[in-house]
C-alpha cells in the first residue's frame, strides 16, 4: 500500500488536480505532469499565437504542413470522433467561434470586447466534413479549407488520457487526474465525485462513488455570453455550425477514456435530452450519462451502474 500524493496547478485555462497512490517516492511524477500539460497547451491552444495549432490555422490550405507529433495525434483522434459521431462533433469550428466573439480564453474575456461578426454569407458557416488529409509518415496534414480548427471539444479529455498513460507508464497503478472536470480515475479505490449543480455552482446536484473510468461534464450556461442582445455559448453543432437549441443544460458522461467522455458530453448538449439518450445508446452503448435539463430533471441511463458503485441525488 503506497502513500497518497497530490498536486494542483493552473493550466489549460483551468485547475488541474492529480492524486496518486504510490510508494515510489523517487519518481518525479509532479514535474512530469506539469511539463506534460504545459507542453500540450503550448502546442494545441487556439489562443496562444505561437502555438502549433495557431500556426496550422494560419497556414494556407492545399499545402502539406508538417506538425508536432502531439498535434498530429490529437487531430487524428478528433477526426476519428468526428467520423464516428456523423460530424456532430467537428473540430473545424474555430472560425465560427471566433466570429461569435470567442477569441480569447473565457476567463480573460471582457463582455465589452466581444463582438459578433457575420460572415460573408450573412450567417454561420457550415463546417466542412472533408477538410483535412493526414500524412502519417511525415506527421503532416493538408487542410482543404480555410476554416480554423478548435480542439476545445476534445483537447482537455485527450490530454488527461495521455497524462494517465504517462503515469501508468512509470508504474503508478492508482490515482485520479482532473482537468477542469474532465477526469480519469484508475486503480479501483473508490472515490467520491460530485457533479456540480448547473443552477447553483456552490452545490452538487448529485455525487457518486467510482473506482475506475473516465468522466466529463459539459454545460451550456458557464461559457456563454451576450452580444447585442444575442446569447451565445461555446458548443457548436458540427453539422450546422450554429449554437444548438436544446432543453439540455448540463451533461455528465461516463466512458472508458476522457476524450470519448468529453466529445459525447458536448454532443449531448446539441439535442433534446431524450434524443440524446437514444443517440448515446446507438453510438456509444458502453458509455453512460446523467443529463440535467432546463426543468431541473435528471435523466440517467441505467448503464451508469457500469461505472458507479453508489449514486446520491
Amino acid at each position: 500500500m503506497g502513500t497518497k500524493q497530490s498536486l494542483e496547478f493552473n493550466g489549460m485555462g483551468t485547475t488541474i488536480k492529480v492524486e496518486v497512490i504510490t510508494d515510489k517516492i523517487s519518481i518525479d511524477w509532479k514535474t512530469m505532469m506539469r511539463t506534460w500539460f504545459a507542453t500540450f497547451e503550448s502546442i494545441c491552444s487556439r489562443f496562444q499565437r505561437d502555438s502549433e495549432l495557431a500556426r496550422l490555422n494560419q497556414s494556407p490550405s492545399w499545402m502539406i504542413v508538417p506538425i508536432h507529433p502531439i498535434l498530429y495525434d490529437v487531430l487524428q483522434a478528433a477526426f476519428q470522433y468526428a467520423a464516428k459521431t456523423d460530424f456532430y462533433f467537428n473540430p473545424f469550428v474555430g472560425s465560427i467561434l471566433k466570429n461569435m466573439g470567442y477569441e480569447r480564453p473565457f476567463q480573460k474575456q471582457q463582455p465589452l470586447f466581444l463582438e459578433y461578426k457575420e460572415n460573408k454569407k450573412g450567417g454561420c458557416s457550415v463546417p466542412s466534413r472533408k477538410s483535412i488529409s493526414f500524412f502519417p509518415n511525415q506527421k503532416a496534414v493538408m487542410k482543404h479549407t480555410d476554416e480554423e480548427i478548435d480542439l476545445g471539444g476534445i483537447g482537455k479529455g485527450w490530454s488527461v488520457d495521455q497524462a494517465h498513460r504517462l503515469l501508468k507508464g512509470i508504474g503508478i497503478e492508482q490515482g485520479m487526474i482532473d482537468a477542469g472536470g474532465d477526469m480519469v480515475i484508475w486503480g479501483g479505490a473508490p472515490r467520491k465525485i460530485g457533479i456540480m449543480n448547473p443552477f447553483a455552482e456552490d452545490e452538487d446536484i448529485a455525487n457518486f462513488i467510482i473506482g475506475a473510468g473516465a468522466v466529463a461534464t459539459s454545460n451550456v450556461l458557464y461559457r456563454s455570453w451576450s452580444v447585442r442582445g444575442r446569447r451565445f455559448h461555446h458548443i457548436i453543432h458540427g453539422q450546422t455550425g450554429k449554437n444548438p437549441e436544446s432543453d439540455v443544460v448540463q451533461t455528465t458522461v461516463f466512458a472508458s477514456c476522457a476524450s470519448e467522455a468529453d466529445v459525447i458530453a458536448k454532443i449531448l448538449c446539441m439535442m433534446s435530452a431524450k434524443e440524446g439518450i437514444r443517440w448515446l445508446n446507438r453510438h456509444f452503448p458502453k458509455a453512460a450519462c446523467i443529463i440535467v435539463n432546463e426543468s431541473g430533471q435528471l435523466l440517467i441511463t441505467p448503464s451508469v451502474s457500469r461505472y458507479v458503485e453508489r449514486l446520491v441525488v
Binding site: T14, M183, G194, M196, D204, A216, L221, R223, Q250
Partner: peptide, 25 residues
C-alpha cells in the same frame, strides 16, 4: 428501459460540494 428520470418534488435541496467535482469545462 432506456432512462431513469428524476423530477424534483419541490424546491430541490442541493448536496454540499464534494472535494472532487466534475463540472462544466
Amino acid at each position: 428501459n432506456e432512462v431513469i428520470t428524476l423530477t424534483p418534488k419541490g424546491q430541490s435541496s442541493g448536496l454540499p460540494p464534494s472535494e472532487n467535482r466534475t463540472r462544466r469545462s
